[in-house]
């Protein structure tokens, strides 16, 4: 059984997607959070911005690097977790719930087919770690 929540889908860019009909809530995985180290700030695109699969929806700055957040799906941002701007510490303890980042009204349901289930994502993470 995977160590990643089984109700989510995952991208190879280390974001998760919670699908509720045509709305997808997005955040980063705990693998991404651990690789980033201490998170200093999060900058997210605003509500009504359009995002495209494989392109940035924000930027995260940590003690190690500044990293673009890559959208797992395309669509319009309908909500942004502004609590993260005040308390990025949430990302170190609860990336899958309180640490959500944006919610997107998706354009294309078929893009979800590009995402990984928890077992496949875990295998992918193992491969990535094996390359280190």
């Amino acid at each position: 059984m995977s160590t990643y929540p089984d109700d989510l889908l995952y991208s190879r860019d280390h974001t998760w997607a919670r699908v509720d009909d045509t709305v997808v809530t997005i955040g980063i995985t705990d693998f991404a959070q651990e690789n980033l180290g201490d998170i200093i700030s999060v900058d997210l695109y605003t509500v009504d911005s359009a995002v495209k699969q494989g392109e940035p929806f924000g930027l995260i700055e940590s003690s190690k690097a500044t990293v673009e957040l890559i959208a797992p799906v395309s669509g319009d941002i309908i909500a942004v977790n502004e609590d993260l701007f005040d308390d990025v510490g949430v990302l170190e303890c609860d990336v899958y719930d309180a640490g959500w980042m944006i919610a997107v009204a998706i354009d294309r349901v078929d893009e979800l087919d590009d995402l990984l289930d928890p077992d496949d994502y875990e295998e992918y993470v193992d491969q990535v770690q094996g390359r280190r």
């Binding site: 860019d13 494989g54 392109e55 940035p56 190690k64 690097a65 500044t66 990293v67 673009e68 890559i70």
Partner: peptide, 10 residues
């Protein structure tokens, strides 16, 4: 030094 990462590159 400092680093920025995009999709698959840095």
């Amino acid at each position: 030094s400092a680093q920025v990462r995009g999709r698959d590159c840095f």
